[in-house]
Nucleic acid binder design. Structure first.
Length: 379
RNA sequence: GGGGGCAUCGCAUAGUGGCAAUUGCGGGGGACUGUAAAUCCCCUCCUUCGGGUUCAAAGGUUCGAGUCCUUUUGCCCCCA
């Protein structure tokens, strides 16, 4: 079975930012790219048509743990995988449940064999092993599937990080073995991305990156960051790892991040991003705009009839006024979070598209500096 | 005309002798990074942070009253 391919187009000589194209069975993805998170077969509050036509998302995420619990594998298999189930015809990436090892730490038990979760829905027990997670991701059928790893908490001791990384690496061997021994179920190909762990320890990160660089997979990921560490530590680890991972393979920085995080990480050689912030924060009234960050619930927007973001363009961002969206939030109207989600995702996709354009025309470095300043501004 | 009930911080409520006083809403602000999140947290009488002044109003009982008594005012209900 073939795998996805990556064509590196251009590398910015001053920063290390790259442009490229990922070819999958479900289409081509221009990088750098932001991938909206659609944990349970939906990007919360956003229609597929809005996702494709307005936001211009090229690829979205799903989550193995959540989809396994609901709707369950029987339904997904019968639907022809996640693509058949939710009708999204472009590429999909699934996270393995490794993040839930971190976020659901209170309700799971970690062993050499795998991780036993107590369902957050009904308390029932479910054993996830590297093998079962690969099988589950075959059933879900995403174009890109992630290795089952442990995302360690931060801070953690060097001893913990070392042992955690060793476990993640043993699990990775098992993931690869199982993945390579099985076939896709729906006629399109899938690729497995390994994940570099090692917390914020440079030594561990270096070793982990070297190991993964030698595996020759179609793409590689950096995990275990944006879990509470200072942004500088995240940037340092990203830079270190990107310097080791092969240049001709896409690099995916998992779970990152704020718009500023994304630009800084693009500058360090990252190609792919995902994060819940644009959608979660949208539901909580935070809007990312080309001028800065807005808390649309604030009293100051009560009578501001200007569009959310004139400069950005796009239907949701230019048609609706700040005062109107504020009113929707204060009235707990569903349309508020919907408009905010569409807007934020439009902004995120604009951000990476603009970054790509700037990398190609050689103005990325200065543009990034100016944008980061604006993006950290609270309006 | 007769009888009964109720007045608490914007609104609605708790409070049955030790109370600056419950909860919800409303209002103000914050957090959120491979989604257990349309969630969560803080503030919402005044204050120079020591304290001060409060439960319709005025008296009274009591060591102590939002709570008990009297009167007044205002609302609500029932019978003529």
């Amino acid at each position: 079975m073939p795998e996805l391919t990556f064509d590196l187009h251009h590398t910015d000589p001053t920063t290390g930012a790259r442009t490229g194209a990922l070819t999958t069975s479900h289409g081509i993805i221009q990088t750098p790219i932001f991938m909206p998170v659609g944990t349970v077969a939906t990007v919360k509050g956003v229609h597929q048509r809005e996702l494709a036509d307005d936001i211009k998302a090229q690829i979205i995420l799903g989550n193995t743990y959540h989809l396994y619990l609901r709707p369950g594998l029987d339904i997904l298999r019968a639907a022809g995988g996640l693509h058949g189930f939710n009708g999204w015809t472009r590429p999909i990436l699934t996270d393995s449940g490794g993040y839930q090892v971190f976020s659901l730490a209170n309700t799971r038990k970690l062993t050499e064999e795998g991780c036993t979760f107590r369902s957050h829905l009904d308390g029932s027990k479910h054993v996830f092993t590297p093998e079962s997670v690969m099988d589950t991701q075959r059933v879900i059928g995403a174009d890109i599937v992630m290795a089952f790893d442990e995302c360690p908490p931060w801070p953690c001791t060097l001893d913990y990080a070392t042992k955690s990384l060793a476990l993640t690496e043993r699990w990775l061997d098992r993931c690869i073995q199982r993945f390579d021994a099985t076939e896709p179920l729906y006629g399109h190909y899938q690729s497995l991305f390994p994940i570099v762990q090692g917390s914020t320890d440079p030594g561990l990160r270096r070793r982990a990156a070297e190991h993964i660089a030698g595996l020759g997979r179609a793409g590689n990921a950096i995990g275990g960051l944006s879990v509470g560490e200072p942004a500088e530590a995240m940037y340092d680890m990203t830079e270190l790892v990107c310097g080791i991972l092969p240049a001709d393979k896409p690099r995916y920085l998992m779970g990152v991040g704020t718009p500023a995080n994304i630009l800084e990480s693009i500058a360090r050689g990252v190609d792919m991003f995902d994060c819940v912030l644009p959608t979660r924060n949208a539901r909580h009234g935070i809007l990312y705009t080309t001028q800065g960050v807005i808390n649309i619930g604030n009293a100051k927007w009560k009578a501001d009839f200007s569009p959310i973001d004139e400069e950005l363009g796009g239907y949701a961002s230019t048609f609706y006024s700040k005062a109107y969206v504020r009113h929707l939030f204060h009235s707990t109207e569903l349309l508020g979070p919907q408009i905010a989600s569409i807007h934020n995702l439009t902004f995120y996709l604009w951000l990476v598209t603009e970054a790509r354009r700037r990398i190609l025309d050689g103005t990325f470095g200065s543009w990034k500096t100016e944008m980061v300043g604006r993006l950290m501004t609270r309006l």
